[in-house]
């Protein structure tokens, strides 16, 4: 066997005692960041091979969706010319959420050949999906900017309320991680979770304020319906994105607070269920 005597200096990677299975925290992600890198590179293969083509593939789906729905909305529903802007403000975050959750559901099963052969912190798998989709999210965000410039909103949008954007994105990310971990673990135990997730995503597309604005729709309904509607945290987030990016105002704080609470609860459920079952994944796959 070949020995790299020269490189023996940086061979401190070995751990004297492999930590027991219980010791699973997010610090593992730091130690296993090269694994994360490799998994993300695998997911972003197209982008790595050819930057321009990868960029194109990433925006193709939302672009087609926006073009088709815009044509329908303008032609049959007499929407304003800025409709594509309002739509894309919500579609891109929705896409990020949907791709994350759907991808996470398959993340452990889809890497069965790794899970059954090597001990490594399993949360790396859904996290790799999330990181991959963050890259797509960033790329697709250019569509939002382009739309806002091309089909400008009826009034000025730039202002201090833009500071809400990082908060909303952070909440969006937290929602994706929490729900992602929840479905990633659940799909190992129950194989139909993937199908359920995919169906729910389609339902959410119509249930959340994407093709319509929540404000006018809920304006004349009782208060409890308003809160029931925004119990779905994705509705609250998409409404907030649109408030900030398109209407040029701060989001509805009540809505955002409710979304934050639900996201926190989902996050706790996701992390706890994943941790509870992750040691059994190799047996169940």
């Amino acid at each position: 066997m070949r020995r790299e005597d020269s490189s023996s200096g940086d061979r401190q990677v070995g751990f004297a005692i492999i930590p027991p299975l219980q010791v699973q925290t997010f610090t593992d992600i730091v130690r296993y960041r090269f694994v994360l890198e490799n998994l993300v590179a695998k997911n972003l293969k197209a982008l790595y091979r050819n930057m321009a083509l990868g960029f194109f593939w990433s925006i193709l789906n939302p672009l087609v969706m926006a073009v088709v729905l815009t044509a329908v909305q303008l032609k049959f529903f007499g929407q304003q010319a800025w409709w594509p802007s309002t739509f894309l403000c919500a579609l891109i975050p929705y896409n990020f959420f949907a791709y994350c959750v759907s991808g996470c559901a398959n993340s452990v099963i889809g890497n069965a050949s790794l899970v059954t052969k090597v001990r490594f912190p399993r949360q790396i798998l859904p996290i790799a999906v999330i990181v991959t989709n963050l890259v797509h999210f960033a790329i697709q965000s250019t569509l939002v900017v382009a739309a806002l410039l091309w089909f400008p909103p009826p009034h000025d949008v730039v202002g201090w309320h833009f500071l809400w954007l990082p908060v909303i994105v952070a909440l969006n990310l937290a929602l994706a991680v929490g729900l992602g971990l929840l479905v990633a673990g659940a799909n190992v135990v129950y194989r139909d979770v993937q199908y359920i997730v995919d169906s729910v995503m389609t339902v959410l597309f119509w249930l959340c304020p994407l093709v319509y604005d929540a404000g006018p729709v809920l304006a004349n309904s009782p208060r409890w319906q308003f809160w029931l509607y925004f119990l779905n945290p994705l509705s609250g987030l998409l409404d907030s994105y649109r408030a900030v990016l398109f209407w040029g105002r701060a989001p509805d704080l009540g809505v955002l607070a409710l979304a934050t609470v639900v996201i926190a609860l989902l996050g706790v459920a996701g992390v706890r269920s994943f941790w509870k079952h992750e040691h059994r994944f190799a047996d169940l796959i």
Partner: peptide
């Protein structure tokens, strides 16, 4: 080739190694 990187990283090696 890519699997060498993935597998070795799972076993605890860094990119440089």
């Amino acid at each position: 080739y890519e699997n060498i990187y993935l597998n070795a990283s799972l076993l605890g090696l860094t990119r440089r190694q």
